[in-house]
Amino acid sequence: MTTVASDTGVGPLLRRWREQRRISQLELALRADSSSRHISFIETGRSRPSEEMVLRLAEHLDVPVRERNALLVMAGYAPRYAQTAFDDPALAPVREGMERLLQGYDPYPALVVDGVYDVVAANRGVEMLLEGVAGHLLVPPLNAMRLTLHPEGLAPRIRNLREWRADLLAQMRRQIALARSAELRELYEEVAGYPPPERADGPEGSVPAGKADAADGPAGSADRAVDGARAASASPAFALPLRIEHGGRVLSFISSIATFNTPMDVTVAELAIETFLPADRATADLLRSLAP
């Protein structure tokens, strides 16, 4: 009798995670203290994994917490990880800790986003950068990707928009491959479809329309464009900076993202704290001078 492998169920899904991680059955078996034969039987649906085995394989395959619940349900078990609302009293220590972190990072920008990039907390440094953003983009829930890439958001003021946009979209594609979120994919299709912002001098990296002082005239605009090019060439090579105009000056930031270690809740697992460190002394000095 020939056994035909099924394309549905927990086994094929585990196989897709393993292939995505580029791990062989033998390597996964060694990591999970099992045998390659047993892994093969699970993946083809010939063997039903225990709840412990599902969690063990998910752990070694670095499956996101939300997707671990999906694996458990497909295997016939109850979800293991809760999904607590962010404003639930149980998450008060998490909220308070993040709020202290954001306040402590002032005057440098810092914010917290969830799994679809909705902003759940931000400090005054971020609020400063949002000056001039269209009102409809500031209606809660604010979305970090929409705020950054929308033609009426920060995009017209980002000097290196082409590079920054490409990096953000690549980040979203990697997350979609992991999370398989329909909401995230819909957001990606929206922001990837935004038209490029109109600029006074045409190419990205030039002064946005309406930003040069009227008294400057064409020569003033040219000087600003040259200064912008010089600043871009002086940017640190170890990370892509965000170069954004604010108040007639160009600020340069290096961003970093932090997540919680070993989360046991879906909501907490999908929170990310993004901080923006000044990439040059001029940016740091300006932010400190603006701090109350």
Rank of each mutant, 00 (worst) to 15 (best):
T2E: 11
T3D: 09
V4A: 12
S6K: 14
D7N: 14
R18L: 01
L28F: 01
A29K: 04
D33I: 00
S35Q: 04
S36W: 00
G45H: 05
S50Y: 02
S50A: 01
H60L: 11
H60P: 06
V63Y: 09
P64H: 10
A70L: 14
A75K: 03
R80F: 04
A85H: 07
D88K: 01
R95S: 03
M98T: 03
G104T: 09
Y105Q: 15
V113M: 07
V113K: 06
D114I: 00
Y117A: 05
N123Y: 13
E127C: 01
M128L: 15
H136A: 11
H136F: 15
L138Y: 09
P141F: 00
L149S: 08
G153M: 11
A166P: 09
S181A: 09
A182F: 02
E183K: 10
L184W: 08
E190S: 08
A200Y: 10
A200F: 10
A212Q: 10
D216A: 14
S221G: 12
A222V: 10
D223Q: 14
R224C: 02
D227S: 06
S233R: 15
A237Y: 04
R243T: 04
V250E: 08
V250P: 00
L251P: 01
I257D: 06
A258Y: 13
P263K: 03
M264L: 13
V268L: 15
E270Y: 09
E270C: 02
A272L: 03
E274I: 02
E274D: 06
T275R: 14
D285T: 00
L287S: 00
P292C: 01
